[in-house]
Design a protein around this nucleic acid. Sequence first.
DNA 1: CCCTGATTCGC
DNA 2: GCGAATCAGG
Length: 175
Amino acid sequence: MSWTQERVELLRKLWLEGLSAAQVAAELGAGVTRNAVIGKIHRLGLAERGKAASAPRPRAQRPARAAPCEAPIRNGGGATMVIGNLALAVAPRPVVATALRPDQEVVVPISMRVTLMELRETMCHWPLGDPTTPEFRFCGSRYEDGEGPYCRQHARIAYQPHAADRRRQAGRSGR
DNA sequence: CCCTGATTCGC
DNA sequence: GCGAATCAGG
């Protein structure tokens, strides 16, 4: 994602409105980190934002560059989705490939949806919407009992057998 | 632990 | 120019 004129405008607007760098990054959508926002803010000369940020600090020597981390590959064939510098480990097939039937739809009130920055370990990690748009959110519901990465409703969907497996199963066991 | 902005420097 | 890694701090 590059800094197009529109994106720079949105950045400037949100930043001057007082949003934090992380909040601005979340609004700009997946692939934009708060570091990217801060870097751009400085290059644009917007760092002041009226307020004196903090006392001048001497230095911050940058240590040797860390080795690039490997793309996460998890238990038995999860996929990896890479958006910009963000690598999302997608759980194995039941989660990624399960199609929702109408009666399985889980309606998550907009009020309880959260951005990536708002997502906490204790919140449901079920993705909602297109990760490449600023509207992308996570479910954000609290777990029922401190288990798994999903709330009860989404866990039901996530861990049910894949549709193809259900068909195969049905074919095997008769009918 | 959560978060904030600032800075350096390899790319 | 870009932004990850890191720092310093609340």
